[in-house]
Write a protein that binds this DNA or RNA. Structure first.
Lengths: 188, 188
DNA sequence: CCATGTGGCTAAGTTAGTTAGCCAAATGGC
DNA sequence: GCCATTTGGCTAACTAACTTAGCCACATGG
């Protein structure tokens, strides 16, 4: 039989595609195998079962999102940086609506790969907020505020929480403005 | 055989309990039947299968949350009302971490029950924001801002998005303060 | 006191993930 | 070039979960 020439990363990539198309629960080994032109058990030669496959997609997603945010923040600071990463953040989520929720879980203790890539994601935010000179508790609160606001909007948008999809761009812009205002007056 | 004396609402309530305990995907007919002292197929006499069961839990959850928020806002307005519903919102989510995500999806078009209960939920927010005299686009943006901020924080907290669970109360209070500030200067 | 509807049950089917074990295609040393 | 080994497919079979069919006993009400 002619070989399909699969490799672990090809399987993970296709799984990510399927997840974006049909949601996390829409991923099944059946469609995955079908899309890759292979029978179901063959997938086990490349991937260690469904949970491991999902974990692989999650790791790649966090990595990709972190890179996207870092790249958006390059050469910018403060309000400009916030605007840039906010835009990149929403953009990435809209392009990867299925993967997005997977990026929002803290790593399990002891999972070093996940810890590393999750730290990279947080690091981007920390470094942007560093520009506002926030320290200690203020820095923690502000980080949580920023993450919560961005995540809340994007989660509702991609998860179908907003019934009317009108003017979402404007509403998001308005949200970002409020965030920036809050950060500039945080220590008061 | 002695009857267990089940009823649809008992099954739904127990399902909600299980969901809060083990997450949405932790609900199985096996544990449900076991908890209720009954064999699996007997559940079908009260509930129309797994998807319908989840929908039942979702409807009850939205209803419960809406009532909780409405009750928190009674007799209060503006900043005080925001503070009260923000507190009630987080409280409810922490008490029902499994059900909470189920309350965040817009109703499917044509699902009248869901539409009704979802509207009730939004109505509470609208009426509180009405106190700020926001109209038209401002009202829409502010509603989305409020929902996004509260949801983002609570979703990250209950979904394990915040790695360090220290001082979350303070961070949330700080978030609410920022929301209130933003709402008071919204039209500027 | 029996006629009827209801709420349990067992048995069996379906779908999805998984494991075992086989076999052909690639690959690499000689 | 040839054979040994590894690799990547495969079929078959198992398990867990939801679901359906169909049976039977208990409760209820004329």
């Amino acid at each position: 039989m002619a070989r399909a020439g699969l490799a672990a990363d090809v399987v993970v990539r296709e799984a990510a595609r399927v997840i974006d198309e049909r949601g996390v629960n829409g991923l099944s080994l059946a469609v995955l195998a079908d899309n890759l032109g292979v029978r179901i058990p063959s997938l086990y030669k490349h991937v260690d079962g469904m949970p491991a496959l999902r974990r692989g997609v999650m790791l790649a997603a966090k990595k990709d999102l972190a890179e996207e945010l870092a790249s958006a923040a390059v050469g910018r600071s403060r309000d400009e940086a916030i605007g840039a990463i906010a835009h990149a953040y929403r953009q990435w989520a809209l392009e990867h609506p299925g993967q997005y929720p997977m990026t929002m879980h803290a790593p399990a203790p002891g999972d070093d790969d996940d810890t590393a890539v999750s730290s990279a994601l947080l690091e981007v935010i920390f470094r942007v907020l560093a520009g506002y000179g926030l320290e200690g508790d203020d820095a923690i609160d502000a980080t949580r505020f920023l993450r919560a606001s961005l995540h809340g909007f994007v989660a509702l948008e991609t998860g179908g929480g907003f019934a009317m999809p009108v003017d979402l761009d404007r509403s998001y812009q308005r949200l970002v403005t409020s965030i920036v205002t809050a950060l500039n007056t945080w220590a008061e």
